[in-house]
Simulated scan of single mutants.
Amino acid sequence: MRPSPAAAVTLVGVGPGAPNLLTLAAVQAIESADVVAYPVARADAEGMAAQIAAPWITAEQRRLPLLFPMVAEAEPRQQAWREAADALAAEAERGLAVVLLCEGDASLFASCSYALLALADRHPSVPVAVIPGITAAAAAAAAASGQGLPWPLALQQEGLLIRPTPETPAELEALLDWAAAQQAVLALLKLGRRWRWVQPQLERRGLLGSSLFAQRVGWPDQLLARADAITADEQPYFSLLLIRQGWPEVLP
Rank of each mutant, 00 (worst) to 15 (best):
P69H: 12
L67E: 07
E31T: 10
F68Q: 07
E93K: 13
P55E: 11
M48A: 14
P39K: 06
L22Y: 05
A18V: 02
P69C: 10
L22I: 04
Q51P: 03
A43D: 13
M70K: 12
E31W: 03
L24A: 11
A54N: 07
L64T: 13
V9Q: 06
P55M: 11
V71Y: 12
P76W: 07
L67M: 09
R62E: 12
A92H: 03
Q78C: 01
L22E: 02
I30D: 00
Y38E: 05
I30Y: 00
A37V: 13
I57L: 15
G95Q: 05
E73F: 06
A84C: 13
E91P: 00
A45L: 06
L88N: 03
R42I: 05
E75Q: 14
A25N: 06
A26I: 02
G17F: 01
M48T: 14
L21H: 09
V35T: 11
A50I: 05
Q28C: 03
L64A: 14
A74V: 14
G17P: 01
R62H: 09
A49Q: 04
R63C: 08
R82I: 05
L11E: 00
E60Y: 05
A33Q: 08
Q51E: 14
A29R: 00
E75P: 10
V14Q: 00
L22P: 01
A37R: 06
A87D: 09
L21D: 03
V40C: 11
L64G: 12
A49F: 01
G13V: 04
T58A: 15
E73S: 13
D44T: 14
A54C: 08
E31C: 07
A41H: 07
A26M: 04
A18I: 03
G13W: 00
A80N: 07
S32I: 07
P55Y: 15
V35W: 02
A72S: 14
A54Q: 14
R82Y: 09
T10H: 09
G47R: 01
G17C: 03
L11R: 00
A74C: 08
A89I: 03
E93W: 09
A53M: 11
P39N: 07
G13Y: 01
R62D: 07
L24V: 15
A37L: 09
F68D: 04
I30L: 08
E31P: 00
G17Q: 01
R94C: 12
W81A: 03
W56F: 12
A37Q: 08
V12D: 02
W56A: 03
P39C: 09
I57M: 15
A49S: 10
E93M: 12
N20Q: 11
A26L: 04
T23A: 08
I30C: 04
A72I: 11
A53F: 05
M70S: 13
A87W: 03
V71C: 13
Q28L: 05
E91Q: 15
V14R: 00
Y38S: 07
A74P: 01
A53S: 12
A84M: 07
P69W: 11
A49W: 00
T58S: 15
V9F: 09
V27I: 15
M48Q: 10
A37E: 11
R62K: 12
V35I: 15
F68E: 05
R63P: 00
A41I: 04
A37N: 09
F68R: 06
P69N: 11
D34A: 14
